[in-house]
């Protein structure tokens, strides 16, 4: 199957999250939702209105919220905890590490406003380090769906998956590339396009840019595979190695600093099992700033053109 960027509708992944919670709440009475005064922004307010007895606004106190979720989980509940990525993964990191993950608890941290695409709010609210922070914790599962349709599947899948999970979602409406029937499995990379010359591995909002880059590469006679690596941990090493072997060069693309994110994970896996020329598109040792998502992607070299240039470089190194 080849997924293209032609004429697709747009929807923010956070909106799909609110919808998925509503559906989950109907079928599973153990689902509890906690938010930290951002329920309108994260869209958990939808759940809160429908199931007020299972929704708790914990106020602007993220550290407490994480451990309240831990306490609920010890009693058999499935807490979904939401706030912005920067506060979930940053402010409450040690609560997640020491109390949720070390205790092996079934807490789902679904954080919105990930990456530079937050836009005008600027650097304080643009989380570009969460993959590094969350994947570093033993036993943690880390996911960034590529679009709204995949978000719904991911939320339902993590509700069924025992143990701690971190899901990064976005603020801005983004292209809906996949469909209800597109397969989704936690930890299984999804192939969106097959090509023999190079593999582009991306997640989240970088997936549409990767597809666009692949289309433009094709016009130049270079056929790219595009992998939607929605699960950054546990990493689907088998698929990554198979496509490294098949195509002989790799580009990674993420809305994250170059250290400790998707690119690092892919480079480590391939470096150990099947080294090939690899280029990484990501944020190079800079903080974000205010601006439109489009302007920021251009300023921080995260556009489809940046992926295309990186691909040409990796391909040229073969």
């Amino acid at each position: 199957m080849t997924i293209t960027t032609q004429e697709v509708r747009k929807e923010a992944t956070r909106e799909a999250y609110g919808q998925a919670l509503l559906e989950l709440g109907e079928v599973n009475k153990n689902i509890i939702v906690l938010d930290a005064d951002l329920a309108k922004s994260t869209t958990t307010i939808k759940f809160g209105k429908k199931f007020p007895e299972r929704f708790f606004d914990m106020g602007i106190a993220e550290a407490n919220m994480m451990n309240v979720a831990a306490g609920l989980a010890t009693c058999g509940k499935i807490p979904f905890v939401s706030t912005f990525c920067i506060f979930a993964s940053g402010r409450a990191w040690e609560q997640i590490r020491n109390t949720i993950c070390y205790s092996g608890l079934n807490v789902k941290i679904v954080a919105t406003h990930g990456g530079l695409a937050v836009g005008a709010d600027g650097s304080s609210h643009q989380c570009i380090e969460d993959f590094a922070l969350m994947t570093a914790i033993p036993t943690m599962t880390v996911i960034e769906p590529c679009d709204a349709a995949e978000t719904k599947k991911a939320i339902k899948a993590v509700a069924e998956r025992p143990g701690p999970v971190y899901v990064r979602l976005g603020r801005t409406p983004s292209p809906v590339l996949t469909e209800e029937g597109t397969p989704f499995e936690v930890g299984k990379a999804s192939i969106l396009r097959e090509g023999k010359d190079i593999t582009i591995v991306a997640c989240g909002l970088m997936v549409p840019n990767a597809l666009k880059a692949a289309e433009n590469l094709s016009a130049r006679g270079i056929e790219a595979t595009v992998i939607n690596l929605h699960t950054i941990k546990p990493l689907d090493r088998k698929t990554l190695v198979a496509y490294a072997k098949k195509t002989g060069s790799v580009v990674t693309a993420e809305q994250h600093v170059l250290e400790g994110g998707l690119g690092s994970a892919v480079a480590l896996a391939l470096g150990r099992e099947y080294p090939v020329p690899l280029e990484a598109v990501g944020i190079d040792n800079r903080f974000g700033q205010s601006g439109s998502p489009e302007a920021l992607f251009k300023e921080y070299n995260l556009t489809s053109e940046d992926i295309l240039q990186a691909a040409l470089k990796a391909y040229g190194r073969k």
Partner: peptide
């Protein structure tokens, strides 16, 4: 042992979660 602890300041929040769970159930 009802929760892993040792990093100070976290246990009361866990207790709040357990107390809410009792109320819900």
């Amino acid at each position: 042992i009802e929760i892993s602890s040792g990093s100070l300041g976290q246990g009361l929040s866990v207790g709040v979660g357990m107390a809410l769970a009792a109320r819900i159930d």
